[in-house]
């Protein structure tokens, strides 16, 4: 897993509540057995016409947001299915960070497993970022995981909370399984005691 410490990138403001994982990646694309190729399938129904051509109005198809790396959206982002294909698709499109007022629990866990940073900010701060991204061409934010802060060049300085364990793993790019296997004696002991 890639380590995450600090990232500066262009904001893509998708101003919508309840973006569920079926929207992020429809179920019919979950049949792939490898981990690659999901970026072009991100938001498929919203992003493409039936003939596969891009829908001009959709946020990812607007030239001004091309190359965006910070996705900002409304509350309850990532609710629904446990599909890890959702963070894979977001990450493989090129995003490093998703900012929203709240997240679906499983989605948020899945992000951590892949070095994609889910950042929860107050609704008012999210609204500010969305408004600025809509107004200011090429609007960027800096997400500093170590300082737990999101800043822009326009006076925003928004702090966020993150579980210290998740933070540590992200900063070091640690793989959960390796970490757990350091506790193998404790697992053995648990199994013996509960056999």
């Amino acid at each position: 897993m890639d380590a995450f410490t600090k990232h500066t990138g262009k904001v893509v403001p998708y101003d919508m509540p309840n973006v569920d994982t079926d929207q992020i990646i429809p179920a019919r694309f979950l049949k792939k057995i490898d981990r690659v190729g999901f970026g072009e399938l991100l938001f498929y129904e919203l992003r493409y016409e039936e003939d596969g051509s891009p829908k001009p109005g959709f946020i990812l198809n607007q030239p001004r947001y091309a190359g965006g790396t910070v996705l900002v959206s409304g509350p309850q982002f990532g609710i629904g299915s446990s599909r890890e294909h959702a963070p894979w698709a977001i990450q493989q499109y090129g995003f490093r960070v998703v900012i929203a007022p709240s997240f679906g629990d499983i989605f948020r866990n899945n992000c951590y497993q892949n070095g994609l940073l889910p950042v929860m900010l107050d609704a008012a701060e999210v609204d500010t970022i969305i408004a600025r991204a809509q107004e200011i061409q090429g609007y960027e934010v800096t997400v500093d995981l170590e300082a737990q802060q999101v800043t822009d060049g326009h006076g925003l300085a928004a702090s966020f909370d993150i579980d210290p364990f998740r933070k540590e793993n992200l900063v070091q790019g640690l793989d959960d399984i390796g970490l757990t296997l350091q506790n193998e004696a404790a697992i053995d002991a648990f199994e013996s005691a509960n056999a």
């Binding site: 446990s82 599909r83 890890e84 294909h85 963070p87 499983i106 866990n109 899945n110 497993q113 892949n114 959960d176 399984i177 757990t180």
Partner: peptide
């Protein structure tokens, strides 16, 4: 429910 990385875990 868990994700695929957690399934592996």
């Amino acid at each position: 429910g868990i994700g695929t990385s957690e399934v592996e875990h």
